[in-house]
Design a protein around this nucleic acid. Structure first.
Lengths: 112, 112
DNA sequence: CTCTTATATGACTTGACGGGCATATGAAGC
DNA sequence: GCTTCATATGCCCGTCAAGTCATATAAGAG
């Protein structure tokens, strides 16, 4: 299962990731929230962990999973060359910047 | 072939898209640049066009393909809820970008 | 009109992945 | 200890998608 892109091609895995984006969750919580079989949840979590999208913490008999950002950052970076196609439109640019500029302090000269 | 994510899961399609991100290209140009069989290029372009990632223009016997941004915008928007994981750690982001600037592929997987 | 160039399509094969089910591991509680 | 809860794993099967090869379409060139 090579690339990060292949990992997030699976709808159930995207659902799991989106759920974990809000906060960390145990396997059982994911199972009930997303209404999918436990064995399926575990398998997808295994794939996600092997690919570095999530990590787990042990809480008694439970395993609590949370997001690891690195693989999604890769995807985000792959999108970079394409952003000019929609940041050229002003309204789309503003929506995009509104999302990006949550952080108050502009960094020193990186790209852009 | 449902989602935009499934479309970009294919490495050759990502290569085609990245090539087209720079400028529009004919099928033959893509074939030569990426060194893949023409029939394969055509099939991937068919998939990309059906999914709205590209559109084609007719130039004599050639078909010139160019990017259409909408599906990639979808992907970009799906990433939005995850961005806090790296925009909250600006320093880590900077370190990451610095590494990316120097070496093209520091691909590594580890756990904590 | 024929030949060549450029691209698309169809048939077939192969391999990978997800779902389902049974089962294994493992920690808790009694 | 045994039982229950929580999660993981192994196996089988159906599906679907990518690659290959052959062929079809369609537009110049001569």
């Amino acid at each position: 299962m090579e690339s990060s892109f292949a990992i997030i091609a699976e709808p159930n895995r995207r659902a799991i990731l989106s759920l974990l984006a809000a906060s960390e969750h145990s396997v059982g919580e994911i199972e009930h929230q997303l209404r999918m079989p436990q064995t399926s949840v575990s398998k997808h979590l295994r794939v996600l962990r092997d690919a570095g999208f999530v990590e787990s913490r042990v809480d008694a008999q439970r395993r609590v999973y949370r997001i690891r950002p690195e693989p999604l950052m890769e995807v985000d970076e792959w999108l970079a060359p394409f952003r000019r196609f929609w940041t050229l439109h002003v309204d789309a640019l503003e929506r995009h910047l509104d999302r990006m500029d949550q952080e108050p302090e502009p960094r020193k000269g990186k790209k852009r």
